[in-house]
Every structure is written in structure tokens, then in C-alpha cells.
């Protein structure tokens, strides 16, 4: 059974984190904390969805890079989805897209990450 919170959605062995409208230090730190929690639970497949995010600042990006590092260390999988054009351009410009695959939609990201949706419940 899938569980959907305001800020994240669990789908079996995968979790989707939803970034806020403005990805600044506060929002990025919130994502980082969530990420820590799920990593501790053993979830290694993570999608960060930016479909609601209009603005991203460089502090937010620096924290995002921290999340990337953690996932890498924990041998997890990270995907970004729903990036608006300007944000995709920024990620591209700063080289993030070289390390993290970007999908157009959350559904596409789920397919790509191979989530075992609706089979496992993690609470």
C-alpha cells in the first residue's frame, strides 16, 4: 500500500520527496533530514520531485549536493523529476545532471528506478 505524506510518498522500496516552491537552505535542509530518516530505514531508492519548485538558490543546491553524496556513500539510487526548465538549466550548468538522472515526471522516475510499488509497506 502506498503512503503519501504532504512532503513525501513511500512506494515499497522507494520514496519520493517533494521539494517546496522555493528551494532555499531551509527547504533543502528539510529534504536532507527526510533523506537521512529513510536511509536509516534502509530505503536506498530516492526520487526528489521538483514539479512544485519554481526557484532554487545556490545554498539549496549545495545542500542537495550533500544529499547526493550521502546517497552515493550509502550505495543508494537518486533521481530528480519534474524540473522546470530554468532549474534544469541550472542543474545542468552546475553539473548535477552528470551525476543524477533527471526524469520528466515522477511516474517516469518510478519506472526507471524500478520501484516495487504496492508490494511492500514500509512504516
Amino acid at each position: 500500500m502506498a503512503k503519501r505524506d504532504k512532503n513525501f510518498r513511500e512506494l515499497g522500496d522507494c520514496v519520493i520527496l517533494y521539494a517546496d516552491e522555493y528551494m532555499n537552505d531551509i527547504e533543502a535542509e528539510r529534504l536532507e533530514e527526510l533523506c537521512d530518516v529513510f536511509l536509516k530505514r534502509g530505503i536506498r531508492k530516492l526520487i526528489i520531485d521538483f514539479s512544485q519548485t519554481g526557484l532554487i538558490n545556490s545554498i539549496g543546491i549545495s545542500i542537495l549536493v550533500g544529499i547526493m553524496d550521502k546517497l552515493k556513500e550509502g550505495e543508494g539510487v537518486l533521481l530528480f523529476s519534474g524540473l522546470k526548465k530554468v532549474n534544469h538549466d541550472i542543474f545542468n550548468m552546475l553539473g548535477l545532471t552528470k551525476f543524477v538522472p533527471v526524469c520528466k515526471t515522477e511516474e517516469e522516475a518510478l519506472k526507471r528506478i524500478g520501484a516495487r510499488a504496492f508490494k511492500t509497506t514500509v512504516q
Partner: peptide, 20 residues
Amino acid sequence: GHVSQTPALNGRRRGWGMEM
């Protein structure tokens, strides 16, 4: 340059503002 080449400062890599 890209994020991967940027040294971390206080645990966070910074300094891409101008680049952006």
C-alpha cells in the same frame, strides 16, 4: 566548474552563485 570538482566548505560545497 562543476559541483564535483568544488571543495567542500563546512561540509557544504558553495560558491556557484556567480556561475549560476
